[in-house]
Design a binder for these strands. Structure first.
Lengths: 236, 236
DNA sequence: GATCGGCAAATTGTTGACAATTTGGCCAAG
DNA sequence: CTTGGCCAAATTGTCAACAATTTGCCGATC
């Protein structure tokens, strides 16, 4: 914790987890921290210390951790504790295969939706993309990773299909964990913005076939980048 | 577990939730009961009574209920309780749209897998189908519904893609809740076996295109059946 | 010197009690 | 007769203490 500014803990402690849905809040907060790399893969997450850190008891913490375990970003070893999941190249392939399936479906549902739905989605995506470009300029990689997934999540959210969204969000969190480790090996981050811009344009133009192809290529490229990076780190 | 009858308690107690992963056990047990219709849609599920019925405390019960809430078969109203989810026609369309996406992906992954993987999957599917035919003969609808989803789940499981499987299992549970209400309006249950046999044959023949088409049609037909049934019940 | 057995520390799993909140009914006022 | 607020019951949300289990270490023995 400490100074990382942006979100989450913010500050430390003056406020005591305001709000109503407590365990959910903790889960969201933790997910954000994990996904941003505040906890290293394989690291143990201790219930008791979290309880005191967040100024609550182990009950809500436990619920939150269990939730994140079910989402797959934590693993629960019986009577041992929960640990931040370590993702293998195989995991990456799995995640992106499912993402491709869901996002392709989202594309089709979106294109069959009323025009105003498409337009509103495009508008949201445009804003996200603009923000991403801004962060690319200052090379804030965690922010870029966040906006990358926000783009895709908003895309899927445009369908309004709550099951699609629910399934996708889980994968989005896992993807952010992957992307985070990609930082060093990405020579030109601006291609990221371009790639997403292509997706947005194709949606706006309602070019179904090209959009589906672009999604597939986007995913395949990501797997390529992530696995090579991953294997390289492993070999080193 | 005796068939239905009263409900949960059944049992009474000869066995006390043996085993190791307790909360998970409770969740599985509850999911099975809910999905079999032991709890009616909209009905409240009380933590305390479950705790005494299952001879445990509220802690594990709570975890199990939260898990099922996250899966979507229960809904959690803050400070009110958890209730069995009531599915609308819109929900049905959502569920089957995602199922189609995931199952199509599973088909493609399976067809790209080594032959022995396909063969083993076919073998499992064949057994399930045989069992289904048996239950059709005696018109045990809950069993048929269970085997229906077991067929599809095994199909997806054949890919070995754990994310795919995880996402699909959730939808499978929701689907069973839908199918259960379909009983009365299904004049010829044997077409169910035939339909699944077609899917199995196409997988065995590795006919990619036809298999994908069959999956799409299977899902579309299901939505058709389920929504008309649902709307009829609503109108009545 | 290596290995097996037991011991202690740490962590999760479980439990029962207490607090907070929502809901429905009841009573009174208009 | 209707409407408004108050009160009580029921249920979940939270908490702190206790129990069970796993792990790694240390010493004794072969």
């Amino acid at each position: 914790m400490s100074t990382d500014s942006t979100s989450a803990a913010t500050t430390g402690s003056p406020f005591v987890l305001e709000g109503r849905p407590t365990a959910q809040l903790i889960a969201d907060q933790l997910r954000e921290q994990i996904v941003q790399g505040a906890f290293l893969p394989g690291q143990q997450v201790n219930e008791s210390v979290l309880a005191v850190q967040l100024n609550t008891s182990r009950g809500p913490i436990r619920e939150a951790l269990q939730r994140l375990s079910q989402e797959g970003i934590l693993v629960n070893k019986r009577n041992r504790g929960v640990f931040v999941r370590e993702l293998t190249s195989e995991d990456i392939r799995e995640i992106y295969a499912v993402r491709q399936a869901l996002e392709s479906t989202a594309a089709q549902e979106l294109l069959d939706a009323p025009p105003e739905t498409i337009e509103e989605t495009c508008s949201i995506l445009k804003d996200t993309l603009a923000e991403m470009a801004k962060q690319v300029a200052v090379s804030d990689w965690p922010a870029i990773a966040r906006l990358d997934m926000q783009f895709h999540t908003s895309f899927v959210a445009g369908t309004g299909n709550s099951r699609l969204i629910r399934s996708y969000k889980t994968l989005a969190a896992e993807s952010r964990m992957c992307i985070l480790n990609l930082e060093v090996s990405y020579p030109r981050v601006d291609v990221l913005v371009e790639e997403h811009q292509v997706l947005l344009d194709l949606l706006a133009r309602r070019d179904r076939k090209a959009l589906l192809r672009a999604i597939r290529q986007h995913m395949e490229k990501a797997v390529e980048d992530l696995t090579t990076q991953h294997d390289k780190a492993l070999g080193a």
